[in-house]
């Protein structure tokens, strides 16, 4: 089964460049602005959109993404409304892959089978669920694959060669290499250690490898994108969004542009990267 993710990475490979993957939180700072933001992302140069599913207890996220999730929850965001948001986006864009990223509990409570059906129907292509390692594949990974959704796994600096095959076994779409041990928004990894890690992962898989955590500037993005099939930016975009809000945390006339402008600058960084030979 070919998903929009597979198609997008095939196109990028042909074009000889890395993917620019953006992360924003669904419903942050409110559902209507959030829809405008995700619509603006591809126009500003995003190749893949990761959409955070708000959760009260995001154990692997730093303060920026925690706050983004809480802003969304405060205005009543739910998993169902996240799916609505994607449905709204799909009205004008049927090509940009959308990956939902978050934690398992809201999906478990929604009901796994119902969720997979509704997500597929809404136009979602893949899932990244932080607290579902391969040891828990029965929960969602295997059912998701059956439902035609990519289950994108995180590989980390603690995932050694012995463990990598287990991590990659049921992974599809791409592999997300978490460049540091730590939470989102922490310090950046240096390009040489990333390059080493990507090479190591590629010995075990033909899937594209995207790298995230700690990429904030067009220069970071360029450096990482020269060693990987994609660079993921989240916290920096969310910080730009937050800085555009009014004192009560509400969207202003600047909010959508603030995210779009940084996206465009980062996209330039990614596009300036020399793709390492495969």
């Amino acid at each position: 089964m070919t998903t929009r993710i597979d198609t997008r990475f095939a196109e990028l490979k042909k074009a000889g460049r890395a993917a620019f993957v953006t992360f924003v939180m669904a419903g942050d700072p409110d559902p209507a602005t959030s829809l405008e933001i995700i619509k603006a992302l591809p126009k500003a140069g995003a190749d893949v959109i990761e959409l955070g599913m708000p959760f009260t207890d995001p154990m692997a996220d730093g303060p920026s993404i925690q706050a983004a999730g809480l802003r969304a929850l405060k205005v009543g965001m739910t998993l169902k409304k996240t799916l609505d948001l994607v449905r709204g986006f799909r009205k004008d864009d049927n090509a940009t892959p959308i990956v939902l990223m978050g934690y398992y509990n809201p999906i478990y409570i929604y009901g796994v089978d119902k969720f997979l059906g509704d997500a597929k129907a809404a136009g979602i292509d893949g899932l990244i669920i932080v607290d579902l390692p391969p040891e828990e594949d029965d929960e969602l990974c295997l059912p998701a694959m059956k439902a035609g959704l990519n289950f994108i796994r995180l590989a980390t600096p603690t995932t050694d060669d012995k463990r990598l095959p287990a991590v990659l076994a049921n992974t599809s779409g791409f592999v997300y290499y978490v460049a540091i041990t730590g939470i989102t928004g922490a310090a950046a990894a240096d390009a040489s250690s990333v390059s080493e890690a990507v090479t190591r992962i590629k010995r075990h898989t033909k899937l594209p490898v995207c790298v995230g955590f700690g990429i904030r500037t067009p220069e970071n993005a360029r450096a990482i994108a020269s060693h990987a099939n994609g660079a993921v930016v989240g916290t920096a975009l969310i910080d730009a969004l937050r800085n555009s809000l009014d004192a009560d945390g509400r969207a202003t006339g600047k909010t959508v542009n603030a995210v779009a402008e940084l996206t465009a600058a980062l996209a330039q960084g990614v596009k300036g990267a020399q793709q390492a030979a495969e």
Binding site: L132, P133, P134, E135, E136, L154, A155, R163
Partner: peptide, 12 residues
Amino acid sequence: GGRFVAETLMPL
């Protein structure tokens, strides 16, 4: 029960 943790922690 189970082991619902981030991959970083799984080896630990």
